[in-house]
């Protein structure tokens, strides 16, 4: 902790601070996924989780391995993948809305046991 304060005044940001933000974002996403009732909100939670991984990549790249841009490009492609996945997921959710007239996840339990 004392490091954090001394760093604060010496004008540098430790890497753990970035990683901490991404972790909080990730587990906020996990919590959202487990508790939200609407399919769209679940999707929002997933965006948070993916975004957290992106921050990790960029942070590690910048702090630890600045000589190459692997984390940078990984993030770039992950953003694209997130877009793909959102598009298909939303298409499916809209389809569910048409069929069931609702986007509540609680309605999705016709199949069980």
């Amino acid at each position: 902790m004392s490091e954090l304060f001394s760093n604060f005044f010496s004008g540098s940001i430790p890497m753990e601070a970035y990683l901490g933000i991404s972790l909080i974002m990730f587990f906020a996403g996990v919590y959202g996924f487990l508790t939200r009732k609407s399919l769209l909100m679940i999707l929002i939670s997933i965006e948070l989780m993916l975004n957290a991984a992106d921050i990790n990549f960029v942070t590690f790249n910048r702090y630890l391995y600045p000589e190459r841009l692997e984390g940078f490009y990984f993030t770039l492609f992950t953003i694209a993948i997130a877009a793909c996945e959102t598009a298909v997921a939303i298409a499916i959710i809209i389809n569910i809305y048409r069929n069931l007239n609702s986007v509540e996840v609680g309605n999705l339990d016709q199949m069980k046991e």
């Binding site: 989780m49 992950t78 997921a89 069929n99 069931l100 199949m111």
Partner: peptide, 20 residues
């Protein structure tokens, strides 16, 4: 429709943990 939603949400949940 239900299966599709379950599949994509589970799959993306799994792959976000994986990519993390």
């Amino acid at each position: 429709a239900e299966a599709g939603a379950k599949y994509i949400l589970s799959a993306v949940f799994a792959s976000s943990i994986s990519v993390f």
